[in-house]
Design a protein around this nucleic acid. Structure first.
Length: 302
DNA sequence: AAAAATGCCAACCGCGGAGAG
DNA sequence: CCTCTCCGCGGTTGGCATTTT
């Protein structure tokens, strides 16, 4: 099955580009453009490369408007806010960062931001660290009225206003976004110890509290559960505490039908959920190995 | 100082969508 | 419609650089 390869892999050069190849490609594109066909371009340009490779090299590195170098705090904030809004749609996120490519953004997220946000989790095999609360910083609650990405297409939303985005990030911490406690913190505040497995269904509820997709909380479960006496006040912008909810001093909300719908938690992955629970001092974990089957920490620690 | 582990980023891969014929 | 080609995307990998042991 599968499709025919785009080029004869035996007869194309692969791996890092040499300065000569870069110059050849750059010069050719400067004079002729792509000609609307990347596949035939290497032949026309005299390069022994796959067309896709040429395209990638141009788009990710050689384009004159590419911004090289470290990401700024402001760019970080934009990436974070858009990631929470739409998940791993890197091309859309990159479209809001002039000079950055989707590959750049993706790499930056995977190598820096993910750890910055969710914590470079400790030494997994070290019992001393077993009950440390992970260094998960507060995500942000997002006012969806500020920015509505196009949801039906993977095409970058060029109508998005960069000035507006700039302002949005300028005011990230004080106007459009409100920090919420991390779910590890929330779990740490479970009033009584509990078993990990019994936590799982409730974790969904817990995780939805103040979620960016749920600015208006609604009740989500009916059975009162004293384990979730949460003491952290819910930010006003999320809405008032849900009277109907059994969770005192908190609110909960429903997003979609399950965690799988949620890009934020899809990114975290089940491994981290386990890790957060294991690291929660009040959640009554016994043997760490019991619940460490599938790449615990891999999705985050590396 | 050397080896091992980790970080980082460029490049590759294969899939899905769009559009032409 | 159907098929084919090409483009663009997100996920993954390879390998060099840097840090830690």
């Amino acid at each position: 099955m599968g499709r025919a390869p785009c080029c004869d892999k035996a007869n194309v050069k692969r791996g890092p580009w040499s300065p000569e190849e870069d110059a050849t490609l750059k010069n050719y594109l400067h004079k002729n453009g792509t000609g609307g066909n990347w596949i035939s371009l290497p032949q026309r340009a005299g390069l022994k490369r796959c067309g896709k490779s040429c395209r990638l090299r141009w788009l990710n590195y050689l384009r004159p408007d590419i911004k090289h170098g470290a990401f700024t705090e402001e760019e970080d904030n934009t990436i974070i806010s858009l990631f929470y809004k739409m998940g791993s749609r890197w091309s859309v996120i990159a479209a809001n960062l002039p000079g950055r490519t989707d590959n750049d953004v993706k790499n930056h997220w995977n190598t820096k931001l993910k750890k910055k946000l969710f914590g470079a989790n400790n030494n997994n095999n070290n019992n001393i660290n077993k009950f440390n609360v992970p260094k998960i910083e507060a995500p942000f609650i997002h006012n969806p009225n500020i920015y509505q990405p196009s949801s039906s297409s993977s095409t970058p939303n060029h109508s998005f206003n960069h000035d507006h985005n700039h302002n949005l990030n300028q005011n990230l911490y004080n106007q459009f976004y409100v920090p919420i406690p991390s779910f590890s913190t929330l779990l740490a505040q479970c009033s009584t110890p509990t078993s990990p497995m019994s936590l799982l269904p409730n974790y969904t509820t817990l995780s939805n509290m103040g979620h960016p997709y749920n600015p208006v909380p609604t009740p989500t479960y009916s059975s009162p559960d004293a384990r979730y006496m949460l003491h952290t006040p819910v930010p006003e912008s999320v809405g008032p505490p849900e009277e109907a909810s059994s969770v005192s001093g908190s609110s909960s909300a429903v997003y979609g039908s399950s965690l799988e719908d949620d890009p934020f938690f899809a990114e975290l992955g089940f491994g981290l959920m386990q890790e957060v629970m294991m690291n929660s001092p009040n959640c009554g974990y016994g043997d760490q190995e019991d619940i460490k089957p599938q790449g615990l920490g891999q999705s985050v620690a590396n």
